[in-house]
Amino acid sequence: SAIVWHYRRFTLRAFLKQQDGYGEAESLLRFKHLIFFGPTGTAKWRGQIYGATRFSWFVNRQIIYHGIFGEGFFQSIYPAPQSEVAAYLSSIEWFGLTIFLFGLGIFLPGLRIVPYLMFGGTFCVALSYMVRARIEPKFDTVHARLLVMILAFAQPLVRGFSRYFTWLRFKRTPANVIRKHEHLPENARSRGSLSRRVFWSEEGRDRHHFLGEMFRLLEEEGWRYSTDSGWNDWDIQIYGNFWWSIALQTVTEYHGGGKCLTRVRLRNRMVITMIIFNLVAISLLIYHQVNVSRVDFWPIVFYLAALGFLGTRARALKSRVAELVDLAAFRAGLQRVSHKGKPVTRTAEPELEVAVNATDPASPQLPR
């Protein structure tokens, strides 16, 4: 357990800057500790924030442990957990969906009431803060209560925006790193499917040797990635661009006598921006087709062309990561297995012959 002391911010700008910093810190920690964060990037913990929790007075109250038949010696008060309903209603995801439905309601009159109801839920959360806030009597004015409501409304939005902005900014690998290509001996390059790689070793080198070299390569070249927390179905998640990331999975079959067959699988995973793009595009396509007298193929063609372009980006990213896999396997001492099921003999990396004085023109000429 821990207690975090928050210094009071005396201006609205300082408070919002503080929340912006919290969102950035959460996003940076998420890369290394995925297990402690939810799918939207919010931290999962059992602590309490800012005294009374939102909606706790409305949904449930504090609990007193009395013991069996009221015979407990230390009858402590346990605070109610923070309301998940309030967290959802005040989140930036909920607010973004509200704005999206509000825009959609301009074209679909039947949906116009929905965003107002959703915003009403968000407003009720802020209102609950205003009502339940404990303010010193000499400062307890209408303006102070309204300020508390504004802060309660703005805090999750500012924090959530900073969290998403930081996550998307650092979730991408720099473009110059992706454009770079690895230099491999010809016999170390795998051919065939980009999604699967198979390697052989007769010296007991398994997936752990491969993963160790893979981590070194990712660090050396400056890739953004996350490692398995124990609850994921991948070993490494490699972040590529705004649209795609790559999930890397490995497994080793042990055949006795130090013989190991290691399989590597690469899968494209859509980033949240890819999901949002498709949702918006499909919604606009449906609305357009519903409101025209005949089927209009041009918007569909443009959408399919965009998907084709994004598909090429996905394949290019997977091809680049496949090069990393081949190089990591080569460094780990693994032999590539050909499509015929036979290991390919390794050859040493070519060594460059450098003249004696090539590195330093000022060095004296040595006799041959």
Rank of each mutant, 00 (worst) to 15 (best):
P174G: 04
L168R: 15
V142T: 15
A152L: 01
A144M: 11
R169S: 09
K180Q: 13
V131Q: 09
V177H: 10
R145T: 07
T141F: 08
R134A: 14
R169E: 05
T141L: 08
R179S: 15
R132E: 05
V158Q: 02
R163C: 10
P156V: 03
K180S: 15
M130E: 07
W167M: 13
L147A: 15
I135S: 01
A154Y: 02
A133W: 01
M149L: 11
Q155C: 03
D140E: 14
L146G: 05
W167D: 12
E136Q: 12
P156I: 02
W167T: 10
R132D: 02
K138H: 12
V158D: 02
P156D: 00
S162I: 01
M149G: 15
Q155T: 11
V148S: 02
W167P: 03
V158C: 07
Q155D: 12
P137H: 01
V131A: 08
I178P: 05
M130V: 01
G160W: 01
W167A: 14
F139W: 09
N176P: 02
I135H: 02
K171H: 11
M149R: 09
L168W: 15
R134L: 12
L151S: 06
S162E: 01
E136L: 11
Q155H: 10
V158I: 15
Q155E: 06
V131I: 14
T141I: 06
F165T: 12
M149K: 06
L147G: 05
V148N: 13
R169A: 09
A152Q: 04
A154E: 07
Y164V: 12
R134P: 01
V177S: 03
I178Q: 07
A154T: 09
M149E: 04
F139I: 00
W167V: 00
K180E: 13
P137C: 07
R145G: 09
R179L: 13
A144S: 14
V142S: 11
R159F: 10
V142W: 03
S162W: 00
A154R: 07
A175S: 13
R179C: 07
W167N: 08
F161H: 06
H143A: 15
D140C: 09
P137A: 12
I150A: 14
L147H: 08
F139H: 14
G160Q: 04
R163V: 04
H143V: 12
R159D: 03
F161C: 06
R145I: 04
K180Y: 12
L168C: 00
R132Q: 14
T166G: 07
I150Y: 01
F139T: 06
F161R: 02
A154S: 13
P156Y: 02
F170P: 00
L157S: 00
P156G: 04
I150W: 04
P174F: 02
V177G: 06
I150R: 05
R169L: 08
L168Q: 13
A133R: 09
K180T: 07
T141S: 15
P156W: 02
F139K: 11
S162H: 03
F161L: 12
H143C: 10
A175Y: 10
M149Q: 09
R134I: 09
G160V: 04
V177R: 10
V131N: 03
T173S: 06
A133M: 08
V131H: 03
M130S: 14
M149C: 15
